[in-house]
């Protein structure tokens, strides 16, 4: 198995492997890798996603309200995000 990626990097990578994903879905998927760490909180994930959106490497074109009326944003990777991953993803990690 390749080295564990920094969390933000891994989130970007994970989003590249799916059509779209919300913070909750990403957390569920990455729980086996990072779940025991203190930084594994919703706030941290949301902040990473908002920052990557602000840096134009993720898009947030799909939104909905959940049963409780809370906002759910689905993020998807764009061309710039893919370009960064292709160039800088360490060996041992596959880009889908």
């Amino acid at each position: 198995m390749a080295d564990t990626l920094p969390l933000r990097f891994r989130v970007l990578h994970y989003v590249s492997t799916v059509d779209k994903a919300s913070a909750g879905e990403i957390m569920k998927a990455l729980k086996p890798e990072y779940g025991t760490e203190k930084q594994f909180t919703k706030k941290v994930f949301v902040d990473h996603l908002l920052d990557m959106k602000a840096n134009f490497i993720l898009d947030d074109n799909d939104v909905e309200l959940d049963d409780k009326g809370e906002l759910v944003i689905y993020y998807s990777i764009n061309d710039e995000g893919r370009r960064l991953l292709k160039k800088y993803l360490p060996k041992g990690w596959n880009q889908n």
């Binding site: 080295d3 564990t4 990626l5 920094p6 969390l7 990097f9 760490e37 203190k38 930084q39 160039k87 800088y88 360490p90």
Partner: peptide, 17 residues
């Protein structure tokens, strides 16, 4: 304190870091 010490080494192993 925030449980991010591991992140420092992880980041240093990547090109952006």
């Amino acid at each position: 304190g925030a449980g991010r010490l591991k992140e420092i080494l992880r980041s240093l192993k990547t090109f952006p870091g």
